[in-house]
Simulated assay, not measured.
Amino acid sequence: MSFILPEYRAPDFSQARFQTVPDAILRPAPRDGVAPEGYHATTIFPEYFKIGGRWLLAEESRMDCVAVLRGGAVAAVEFRNLKAGEPVVVGRTEDGSEGIYVHAAGFEQPGGEGETFAFRQGRSRETAYSMDYDSIYELLRYEKEHGYIVWVLGPACAFDADARSAFAALVRGGYVNALMAGNALATHDLEAGYLRTALGQDIYTQKSQLNGHYNHIDTLNAVRALGSTAAFVNSGNVKDGILYECVKNQVPYVLVGSVRDDGPLPEVYGNVYEGQNAMREQVKRATTVICMASTLHTVATGNMTPSYRVVDGAVRPVYFYSVDISEFAVNKLRDRGSLSVRTIVTNVQDFIVNVQKGVLAK
């Protein structure tokens, strides 16, 4: 099986129903950070705006933003980044009648309708995921050469020796273009590379070590003493692991903190808006996103990831996976509006090992 990128079918604006619609209405933002009344909120789907008689695609989008005309192009702008006087699109219809058209069916393939009634149409721990795994293997091989793969990891990904080793191999193999996580994932991974424990337990046997509860804060202190994770890795204190491979292979990582963090590591963003900006810089490039075992960071990433990306002038889909052992966790993202997410309910440690074996199999 070889991966083929699905064709995007752009809307046909020559249809009669689009011929008489007016240009989208633009109104100035009344002040910094405030949109005018009746503003249009963007979605995850490709959106076109009729400006000066032409239908313009918002090429970089995210949901829950406002559409702003900047430099002759339509930009999806967070409310907090809106400047007074900027022209903002207003109107709350999405069918083109107000010069705003949301194109949700651009990647749908021609075919008949399914049965009205069928079993097992949801995604749960009983779902068969064999085809999902095979699709992910092929997708990642394709994206290694043609895309930008962003992974979002929770700390569970560093607690198991085999999972940690498998993800490190994916980094070395070129299947990780960027990593996003919190303080915990990075801290426990560095602890494992430094002291062979995670939260004081041996990462293979799970046996608690004497005074092991000090290990993660001893690790944090040692990193902070050297000033950065990269300096700590390059000092030789860390022998292997996820962050080790990111540093050695120059893979960018974005760590955004929370109120419960210890330390934290020097690179952790304490200001959530600065952290969101750093995450979005990676999301803007992403063509595939895989989130594992971190509801907080998964929902955050999902909310800033559109269903499409414009690459070299062509519109292509963004593939988004949410993997967690909790059905609640994977379903929460879909409930928040990220309707294009593909969910897998399984142990993320097993998932990582399976993916590593699958993509690197000869």
Rank of each mutant, 00 (worst) to 15 (best):
Y8Q: 07
S14H: 12
S14W: 07
Q15H: 07
A16S: 13
P30R: 04
P30N: 02
E37V: 15
K50D: 07
K50R: 15
I51H: 06
L56Y: 05
L56Q: 12
A58D: 11
S61Q: 13
G72F: 06
N81L: 15
L82A: 12
P87Q: 01
E94H: 01
G96R: 02
G99N: 12
H103Q: 10
Q109I: 08
G112M: 11
G114K: 07
F119V: 07
R123W: 04
S124K: 01
Y129T: 02
Y129Q: 03
Y133P: 00
R141E: 06
E143L: 05
K144H: 04
H146M: 05
I149M: 11
A166E: 05
L179Q: 01
A181H: 03
N183P: 05
T187R: 11
S208I: 14
G212V: 09
H213F: 13
Y214C: 03
D218G: 06
L226F: 09
S228N: 09
S228I: 02
A230I: 01
F232T: 12
V233R: 08
N234S: 13
N234T: 09
S235K: 08
K239D: 06
G241C: 04
K248N: 10
N249D: 01
V251W: 00
V254H: 03
V256D: 02
E274Q: 14
G275M: 05
Q276F: 11
A278M: 09
I290Q: 07
I290T: 10
N303Y: 01
F320H: 08
F328V: 12
A329W: 00
S338Y: 04
V341W: 01
I344T: 08
V355I: 15
